Measured scan of single mutants.
Amino acid sequence: TKIIYHMDEEETPYLVKLPVAPERVTLADFKNVLSNRPVHAYKFFFKSMDQDFGVVKEEIFDDNAKLPCFNGRVVSWL
């Protein structure tokens, strides 16, 4: 699974690849690859589809939650 993530106000996003199927990747999986960053200091928002509003940034805080996936990749903002 490819996860593209944006940090603070930085213009260029980062990319990490996880050896987990897109439909199975969790917030804990993502946090594990960010071990060099203080993950407890961040809120995690993900590109998600809402039936009422369309594409939104959804906050996910449960480490066991599966991450929303679009075209085989996850897009996140920290």
Rank of each mutant, 00 (worst) to 15 (best):
T1I: 12
T1R: 04
T1Y: 05
T1L: 05
K2P: 07
K2A: 07
K2T: 14
I3A: 01
I3P: 00
I3L: 09
I3H: 03
I3M: 00
I4C: 06
I4A: 02
I4K: 06
I4T: 14
I4N: 00
I4W: 08
I4Y: 13
Y5V: 08
Y5R: 02
Y5N: 00
Y5P: 00
Y5F: 12
H6E: 00
H6D: 01
H6L: 07
H6M: 05
M7I: 09
M7A: 08
M7Q: 02
M7T: 08
D8A: 04
D8G: 10
D8N: 15
E9N: 15
E9A: 10
E9I: 04
E10W: 05
E10M: 08
E10A: 10
E10H: 08
E11G: 08
E11P: 13
E11L: 09
E11K: 13
E11T: 08
E11R: 09
E11A: 12
T12F: 12
T12W: 08
T12Y: 05
T12E: 14
P13C: 08
P13A: 14
P13K: 09
Y14P: 00
Y14E: 08
Y14W: 06
Y14S: 11
Y14H: 14
L15F: 14
L15S: 14
L15H: 15
L15K: 09
L15P: 00
V16A: 12
V16R: 01
V16S: 05
V16F: 01
V16C: 07
V16K: 04
V16W: 03
V16N: 04
K17G: 07
K17R: 11
K17N: 14
K17I: 11
K17L: 14
K17P: 04
K17H: 12
L18G: 01
L18K: 03
L18M: 04
L18W: 01
V20S: 03
V20A: 00
V20N: 02
V20K: 06
V20F: 05
A21I: 06
A21Y: 05
A21M: 06
A21T: 09
A21F: 05
A21L: 06
A21G: 09
A21H: 09
A21E: 11
P22T: 02
P22L: 03
P22D: 02
P22S: 06
P22Q: 04
P22C: 06
E23H: 12
E23M: 07
E23P: 04
R24K: 13
R24T: 11
R24E: 14
V25E: 04
V25L: 07
V25F: 01
V25M: 01
V25Y: 05
T26M: 04
T26E: 02
T26I: 02
L27K: 01
L27N: 00
L27H: 04
L27M: 01
L27T: 00
L27R: 00
A28G: 12
A28H: 07
A28M: 11
A28L: 10
A28I: 15
A28Q: 10
D29M: 07
D29F: 02
D29V: 04
D29E: 06
D29S: 01
F30L: 13
F30Y: 00
F30P: 01
F30M: 06
F30K: 07
F30T: 00
N32H: 15
N32Q: 12
N32E: 11
N32A: 10
N32D: 12
N32K: 14
N32C: 08
V33P: 04
V33C: 13
V33M: 09
V33Q: 08
V33F: 07
V33R: 08
V33K: 12
V33S: 14
V33D: 00
L34C: 06
L34S: 01
L34Y: 03
L34T: 02
L34D: 01
L34V: 06
S35N: 11
S35M: 12
S35D: 11
S35F: 12
S35P: 14
S35W: 10
S35T: 14
S35K: 13
N36T: 13
N36E: 11
N36M: 10
N36L: 13
R37P: 07
R37G: 08
R37Y: 12
R37H: 15
R37F: 13
R37L: 11
P38N: 14
P38W: 08
P38D: 12
V39C: 10
V39E: 07
V39W: 07
V39S: 07
V39K: 06
H40I: 06
H40F: 04
H40V: 08
H40E: 12
H40C: 10
H40Q: 13
A41E: 14
A41Y: 12
A41H: 14
A41R: 11
A41D: 15
Y42C: 07
Y42H: 03
Y42R: 05
K43H: 09
K43V: 03
K43F: 00
K43M: 05
F44W: 03
F44Y: 08
F44C: 03
F44L: 01
F45H: 03
F45Q: 04
F45V: 05
F45R: 04
F45D: 01
F45S: 03
F45I: 06
F46I: 04
K47V: 09
K47L: 06
K47G: 07
K47H: 06
S48W: 04
S48Q: 12
M49Y: 14
M49R: 13
M49A: 14
M49K: 14
D50V: 10
D50R: 15
D50G: 14
D50S: 15
D50I: 07
D50Y: 07
D50H: 15
Q51Y: 08
Q51H: 12
Q51A: 12
Q51M: 13
D52Q: 13
D52H: 15
D52V: 09
D52I: 13
F53T: 15
F53M: 13
F53I: 10
F53N: 15
F53K: 15
G54W: 02
G54R: 15
G54A: 15
G54L: 10
G54Q: 15
G54I: 15
V55M: 11
V55Y: 10
V55C: 11
V55A: 12
V55L: 12
V55F: 13
V55E: 14
V56T: 15
V56C: 14
V56A: 12
K57L: 12
K57I: 12
K57E: 14
E58G: 04
E58M: 09
E59Y: 07
E59S: 03
E59H: 10
E59L: 07
E59M: 05
E59A: 06
I60D: 00
I60A: 02
I60E: 01
I60G: 03
F61M: 12
D62F: 06
D62N: 06
D62T: 05
D62G: 02
D62Q: 09
D63A: 05
D63W: 05
N64V: 00
N64C: 06
N64A: 04
N64M: 03
N64L: 04
N64K: 08
N64P: 03
A65V: 07
A65M: 07
A65S: 10
A65C: 08
A65Q: 13
K66Y: 09
K66M: 10
K66A: 10
K66T: 07
K66H: 10
L67A: 08
L67C: 00
L67Y: 01
P68E: 01
P68N: 03
P68G: 01
C69N: 11
C69K: 08
C69H: 08
C69D: 05
C69S: 12
C69F: 11
C69Q: 09
C69E: 06
C69T: 11
F70R: 08
F70Y: 10
N71A: 10
N71E: 14
N71P: 02
N71I: 04
N71S: 07
G72N: 04
G72E: 02
G72D: 08
R73L: 13
R73F: 14
R73E: 15
R73K: 15
V74P: 03
V74E: 07
V75Q: 12
V75F: 10
V75P: 00
V75Y: 14
V75K: 05
V75H: 09
V75A: 05
S76E: 00
S76Y: 07
S76Q: 00
S76D: 03
S76C: 12
S76G: 14
S76I: 02
W77E: 04
W77Y: 14
L78H: 03
L78K: 04
L78M: 07
